[in-house]
Amino acid sequence: MLKKLKLDSRYIKEIDFGILICSILVLLYGALNIYTVTRSKVGIYYVKLQLIWLVLGLVTTYIILLVDYTLIQNFTSLLYWGSVLMLLATRIIGSTVNGAQGWIALGNRAIQPAEFAKLGMIMMLAKKLDEMEGDINNPKNFFTLCFYALIPMLLIVVQPDMGMTMVCFFIVLGIFFTMGLNIKVILGGIMGLATSIALLWNSSLIKPYWKRRLTSFLNPEAESLGIGLQATQSKIGIGSGGIFGTGAGLGSSSTSYVSQFVPESHTDFIFAALGEQWGFVGAIFLLILYGIIIYRSINIARTSKDIFGSVICIGLVSVFLFSILQNIGMTVGIMPITGITLPLMSYGGSSVLTNYIAIALVLNIGMRRKRINF
């Protein structure tokens, strides 16, 4: 029994430890920044929970590495439809957080099914593309892929969770583009999306609060005491960090500006905390860690032994690229505020766990891309 729980040393040598180490460093870096903005109110409460999620994420990673990802592929449909059912469940028993009915309470904790649906969608698209042998420009294949992508996206739209919907769209766009979809089809899809957004914008699905939140970045100072408060205060906090940061919030008696004046500074606006604490140098350090994860994941995608593995890697890269751009962009006022978390940096159990599941799959794909003789 114990032998089944032990990873063969020949596989261990093939693990991309660069991705794993950088992911741990990002999370620990995030935990430190979470501490600086929450310690004056709740002590180490959020930091402790975040570290617990790190341990659970690493345990989950190890378990996934024990199983050949081609065997996991056989359970893709179960994982996909299971996540869809979870999204449907939010319509009945879901809790509303920040205007979106997208959480399911489990005792005094809650999970966000959309995070798992995002992962399920990536795996289902990878499975179907593998079965199609990558022939994405076949009309039947293309519409089949769109069908599986639209189901979770529509269920996320009606929550409404605009941020996660955008993430899912860019996952699909990244996969379709990388797999060689005709550029005319991609442009047509973007135009169709723009039309859909225009229709949704004038429907009752998007509430006035969301419209103001999405457009406030264009002129946050006009509503600096209302919907534009986060963006305005976030920019002040980041700007105060300068080159090397203020270090406020690290001392026993100091309190950071961001912790006092930026709502959601431990989740959506964690980059504002980083900017104030560590400045430009600290921000560059984070981007280097992200760059290593993305670069190495792309290399694994390029050398994967099958399409299923390549597409999963592309999906992770798409999630990281867009989430990083959108989250940092909204904290510095160049992107709309959408509630997208910064991968592994922001506080959140569902986000941390699903990110580690995705990273584990990428590591699994990388360690099994070569034939190993036993």
Rank of each mutant, 00 (worst) to 15 (best):
M121W: 00
L71I: 15
A117G: 03
P139N: 08
I64T: 05
I64D: 03
S95R: 10
I104V: 12
T76R: 03
L150S: 11
T60P: 01
D68P: 00
A149T: 10
F75L: 12
I104Q: 09
T96A: 02
L71Q: 12
L106K: 10
M121R: 02
E131H: 03
N141H: 15
A114R: 12
L155F: 06
L65G: 05
A100M: 03
M153I: 13
M86E: 06
I122N: 12
L85W: 05
L78Y: 11
K128G: 00
L56R: 04
Q112M: 05
A114I: 08
Q73S: 11
M132A: 14
I92W: 13
V67K: 14
I111P: 01
L85A: 14
L78W: 06
A110C: 04
K127D: 08
Q101Y: 00
N141D: 05
K118W: 01
K127V: 06
M153E: 05
Y148V: 06
M124Q: 15
S95M: 11
L66Q: 07
L78H: 02
A110T: 14
L129E: 10
E115A: 09
L119H: 03
L85D: 01
P139C: 02
L58C: 11
I136S: 05
R91E: 10
F75H: 10
L150E: 02
G107D: 10
A149V: 07
M86W: 02
N74M: 09
S83K: 03
W81I: 05
E115H: 07
T70N: 14
L145S: 01
I92V: 15
N141G: 15
L87P: 05
E131T: 02
A105E: 14
L58M: 10
Y62E: 07
Q101W: 02
T60Q: 01
T90Q: 11
N141L: 14
F147W: 04
L125W: 12
V97R: 08
L88K: 03
D135A: 09
K140D: 13
M132Q: 07
E115F: 08
A117V: 06
V67I: 15
G82Y: 00
I151T: 02
T70K: 13
A110W: 15
G82I: 00
L125Q: 12
N138L: 07
M132I: 06
L65A: 09
L78F: 09
I63C: 04
M121N: 01
E115D: 11
T76F: 01
P139F: 02
A149S: 12
N108S: 15
N108Y: 09
L150H: 00
W103L: 10
D130Q: 07
T61F: 04
G102D: 09
A110E: 13
F116N: 00
A105L: 13
K127L: 12
A149Q: 06
I122K: 05
I72G: 07
D130T: 07
A114F: 11
A117R: 02
W81Y: 13
N108P: 10
I122A: 07
